[in-house]
């Protein structure tokens, strides 16, 4: 296979960060996991829409619902981080703005996802708030 890089380009030693394929695969794998999870989420939304507070607490206390809700949140926030990262990298080209937005995206996804998972687990383990 022909090498299209110039000698200067080779000397600079820059090129692929060798992380692109991993990111691409993680986007696909999380999307495959989310396909059944979001269908379950829409079904759950319908069930919860017709229920009140006590029924919602009882619903989260069911182990199957608690585990699926935690998976839905964890995988969604992971997938969201990957998707928004690509959007920022595509449209924001100022180094400082891009770095700031990438860090903000990471923090929002980790904090939002972690907090939401904690809330589900609190209800699952402790039941209705006193």
């Amino acid at each position: 296979m022909a090498d299209y890089r110039s000698t200067l380009s080779r000397a600079r030693g820059l090129g692929s960060a060798k992380h692109g394929v991993g990111h691409w695969i993680s986007e696909r794998v999380t999307s495959v996991a989310l396909a059944p999870l979001v269908i379950w989420a829409v079904y759950s939304g319908l069930v919860l829409a017709a229920a009140g507070y006590a029924d919602a607490v009882a619903w989260v206390r069911s182990p199957v619902n608690a585990v699926l809700a935690v998976l839905l949140l964890a995988v969604s926030f992971w997938h969201m981080h990957a998707g928004m990262r690509v959007i920022i990298e595509d449209y924001v080209h100022t180094a400082l703005n891009k770095t700031a937005l990438l860090v903000l995206n990471l923090f929002v996804c980790v904090l939002g996802g972690g907090f939401a998972v904690f809330c589900v687990l609190k209800v699952a383990f402790m039941g209705a708030a006193a």
Partner: peptide
């Protein structure tokens, strides 16, 4: 996430 937080709050 806000919905989960509200359910956990009461």
């Amino acid at each position: 996430a806000a919905g989960a937080a509200s359910l956990a709050s009461g």
